[in-house]
């Protein structure tokens, strides 16, 4: 059986909020190392991969592999009943037809209990090869969100160009064009505000802004975001959590 207690329900709330507009039904795969999820959007353009390590739970118990097939809209409805600071306990049997969720406030004088029906989801699983990326950029997640939102007003796609000292986001559309250039810099007082670039070789790739704007819903999970780019390889957008991550992969636009 699964029993997993999360100190802050907000972690799961933010994870679900980050991915629910990209995928609707998905398996939460539970085993002794933690809870993981991999799902592609309907058009097979984007993929989300989420991992919550057992270290993020206390206690965590999962005797055997359990796949929890969950409709994320349903889960969102139930999680609305939880405060971010509530303690959240997830429970499921070995071959479950429902997932039990208990929310307790920090004073421990209120507890709410919900059961959510599970579904059988036959999901494709993709093998994601280890990639040595040409460029890795770490920037504030709020900055990335602002850039994607602003440029999406002008165009459907953005070109990301990483060079040794800066990363440039540019787009052009019917009403005109726009670009944002971020120079590499280190903010010693507020490290989360820094922009860093690790470059093997300069790279320039074009991506759909609709998906990037969607990924940015994960900004609440982490003050920084990591973009990994290589020519003709899906973009990796990673939000790190204390005991896990949410990663998005986005297929590039190709050809002229």
């Amino acid at each position: 059986m699964l029993e997993a207690r999360l100190e802050q329900a907000g972690v799961l709330k933010k994870v679900v909020e980050a991915i629910k507009d990209l995928v609707q039904d998905c398996n939460f795969d539970c085993n002794d190392s933690g809870i993981a999820l991999q799902a592609m959007d309907n058009s097979h353009v984007a993929l989300v991969s989420m991992s919550l390590s057992h270290e993020g739970f206390s206690p965590y118990r999962c005797d055997r592999n359990i796949a929890l097939g969950i409709n994320l809209n349903s889960l969102t409805k139930v999680l609305r009943a939880a405060q971010n600071e509530d303690i959240l306990t997830l429970k499921a049997a070995d071959s479950p037809d429902s997932l039990n969720l208990v929310f307790e406030n920090t004073e421990r004088d209120r507890s709410s209990e919900y059961d959510i029906k599970l579904m059988d989801i036959d999901q494709e699983h993709l093998g994601i090869p280890d990639t040595d990326y040409s460029a890795t950029v770490v920037l504030p997640s709020a900055e990335f969100q602002r850039i994607c939102r602003d440029l999406s007003q002008l165009s459907e796609s953005v070109t990301i160009e990483a060079s040794k000292s800066s990363v440039k986001f540019s787009c052009s559309g019917d009403i005109g064009n726009g670009s944002v250039n971020l120079r590499q810099h280190q903010d010693l007082e507020k490290p989360d505000q820094s922009t860093s670039i690790e470059l093997v070789e300069p790279v320039s790739l074009t991506f759909s802004l609709k998906y990037l704007v969607n990924f940015c819903k994960a900004s609440a999970l982490s003050p920084t975001v990591k973009l990994s780019l290589s020519t003709d390889v899906p973009l990796l957008v990673e939000y790190k959590m204390e005991a896990g991550y949410v990663r998005f992969y986005l297929a590039p636009k190709i050809g002229d």
Partner: peptide, 14 residues
């Protein structure tokens, strides 16, 4: 104009 690629051509189903 550029075509949107799909992940199937980059990642293999396992």
């Amino acid at each position: 104009s550029q075509q949107q690629g799909r992940l199937d051509s980059f990642f293999q189903t396992i």
